[in-house]
Design a protein around this nucleic acid. Structure first.
Lengths: 222, 222
DNA sequence: ATTATATCGATATATTTATATCGATAATAA
DNA sequence: TTATTATCGATATAAATATATCGATATAAT
């Protein structure tokens, strides 16, 4: 008699290649602008013109979505947009908490994430008492000490971390202990988490490094 | 007689691989924290423990910096840090302008970029008159209409763009026309520029796409 | 009706990036 | 003193990613 496996079963969704995910989010933005301009059909070539990638690459990327285009014509803009949203996980709701309501946190909480990205801020937390117990963009702000208790009575999918470097790891540990699975990290330092937690870093210095390096590489000397 | 080439000569600095640049900026952060803790020596293995990359990759990345480590010991923290800063272009000053003084722009201008990254904000511009003619973090804010004139009398290396999507392309065109070579784009849309302009996008949705996809991939179903 | 063309999807190749292996070396322990 | 170990740097292999090629097809032009 074979043993019944006790490891938790996991949805066998294929792991999407990182470079493709990143480019899909750019195609999403371009397609959104096309939709606003009432454009109905588009193609790899047309999308390619709007971004910095070659048509072959755009075509290959779109193939992963599994929808069929028409030769000579391409794809319906709205279908492409929906397919991308489904693929990257933006067509279902993600309940999010903001921690750190400084300038950056305020910028994040004021952005209309829900309609296009499924991200819904249900509360925010801040270390400072004077930023607490107010409401920003319909989202209530609480003192951060209340966070663990809050999570016990509210389902939270994602914590958006916008705290200073010095607080980042401590707050992360609290978030992990509370059982939240996803962290979108805007603090300027990489954070350490156990393997079952999913972290994505939005580290500004990464793009700054690329920018300053490219500027020095291309310096015209004569 | 051979023709004298008329194409502008360019410093023959090798083009740094993008993935390495991005990881170097993370090592930089980790090393900075080590320096603050007075750690003198470190190694690929130790750095690896602090980040999500394997020791082999860290070693290979550091090799590009061209400094020699000691077997069994590794590298001096301060030498590594300096080498990274030189390599990515953070050891010389970059004169920067902020355009768009909303929450995000304010967060950017209040961050201490200069000491570690060489980025010096010399002025900011905003479309709103009521945000103009004040000073934030020692940086004067002007109406954006004054930008072209300002650039004629001040050397500007980088424009940091933190404007709404709707304004992004128009402001970009103005920046390009004014002759600025580098753009750090925090507006939520990719912008189009001529080939001699260097743009780096800090698109939040890229990391969001990775986060939401990874969350759905790893969903426990049983 | 025929030809030309732009695109798709599939497959093949090239390039880039990540990882492994291995001898040499500096420090530490026996 | 000798053995052991952690690391380095160089080179080799593997894996992932990007690009090219090509036949098929839907539309538009002749």
């Amino acid at each position: 008699m074979g043993k019944i496996p006790v490891v938790p079963a996991v949805a066998n969704v294929k792991k999407a290649p990182l470079p493709i995910l990143r480019r899909l989010s750019i195609y999403h933005q371009v397609l959104t602008e096309m939709k606003e301009r009432q454009v109905e059909m588009t193609s790899s070539t047309v999308i390619s013109n709007a971004v910095e990638y070659k048509p072959i690459q755009v075509r290959k990327d779109l193939q992963i979505l599994g929808l069929v285009g028409k030769p000579k014509i391409g794809f319906r803009v709205d279908e492409l947009l929906d397919a991308i949203k489904r693929y990257v996980g933006w067509s279902k709701e993600h309940r999010a908490i903001l921690i750190g309501v400084g300038n950056l946190g305020s910028a994040l909480i004021n952005f209309p994430w829900f309609a296009e990205y499924g991200l819904r801020f249900i509360a925010a937390f801040d270390a400072s008492e004077k930023r607490s117990n107010i409401v920003v963009n319909h989202v209530p702000i609480h003192p951060v000490s209340y966070f663990p208790k809050y999570v016990r009575s509210h389902a939270v999918d994602i914590v958006v971390l916008a705290v200073p470097i010095t607080a980042a790891q401590d707050v992360t540990d609290m978030v992990v202990a509370a059982g939240v699975r996803g962290i979108w990290n805007f603090s300027a330092t990489p954070i350490k988490v156990p393997p079952h937690i999913i972290v994505e870093n939005a580290l500004f210095t990464q793009s700054l490094a690329v920018l300053t390096r490219r500027l020095s590489e291309g310096k015209i000397i004569k």
